[in-house]
Amino acid sequence: MDPLWVTFVKALLLCLVLLGAFAYMTLIERRLLGRMQHRHGPNRLGPLGLLQPIADALKSVFKEDITVSAADRFVYVLAPMISITFALAAFGAIPGGPAGSLFGWNPWIMDLDIGLLYVLAVTSIGVYGIFLGGWASNSKYPLLGSLRSSAQIISYELGLGLSVLSVIMIAGTLNLRAIVEINVWSVSPWLWPPLIVAFGAFVISAIAEVNRTPFDLPEAEQEIVAGYLTEYSSIKWALYQMAEYVNMMTAAAFISTLFLGGYKGPTFLEPWIPGISDWPIIWLVAKMAIFMFLFIWLRATLPRLRYDQLMRFGWVYLFEIALGAALLTGAVIAFVL
């Protein structure tokens, strides 16, 4: 256990790093989208456009902060704060390296026995931000956006929970650090088929949970202006954007931790540089980067689903597939191992 002040400093640093990463993720996303769509993207401000996020931040702070006069004041202001608070809080349970590897301190904020459930619980509260923001704006399109988002998140949480079940059954623990140390793939090759299916289902559900294309119906700009964001401006709008990107990063880190060995590096590098696979943070960040790229890549590639397709896909296919993977995992553990 670290002393309390260390935990506090680490939590503060994590928040700052996540928000800094958010600023530069917007630049990376716009540059990558530009590249994929044969255009330049923002490249004027500083070398490679590196000062663009700072200019964007200044701009959104100094814009007029509009509060719709028909809005429910209290909930309208509360909603973006709920979004960003729970988005930042969720990351705290994800371990960044082996015990004591960060200059003698532990590279995580909380080491919970129920770390996995903690992340699921906190992210499921985050939906209130979107949901209440859309309602409090007291306007048609935001309300439609928030109704969509709540229906979508409830539907895809089933797929998410069921695909995690395979990992929980194999690892036999809810502690994220223990799950990384066990390494679910090394238990038995018999478990690979259900794990591959669960991994796929989990990635798809996670994309739906963070409202990214092709599941970005809550803010589908061609249909409902900007969904729940329509009536927000200035810093409140920026808070929602922060929450979205921090949620993406949490999802990427959560996928890596559950399925891809989290903070552990590849062991084949050990003969050259001893101890490299135990270096903290960098391996987790590298794995997260793969998924962040995947999220952006999907946005540039796939069209948005229609609402009924979204619901059918969630309830008819994803739910059954994840359930099948969980049952298969259970059967393999019970009858083969």
């Binding site: 919970l112 026995d113 129920i114 459930l117 903690y118 699921l120 619980a121 906190v122 499921s124 509260i125 939906v127 209130y128 949901f131 209440l132 309602w135 109704l147 709540s150 229906a151 998140i153 409830i154 949480e157 809810l174």
Partner: peptide, 22 residues
């Protein structure tokens, strides 16, 4: 009672109340 707390948040806070509000 950490497990109970997490379940409380996931089931009541995350699912049932979202449906209520919906």
């Amino acid at each position: 009672a950490h497990f109970l707390a997490a379940i409380q948040v996931i089931v009541y806070g995350g699912a049932i109340m979202v449906l209520f509000l919906f």
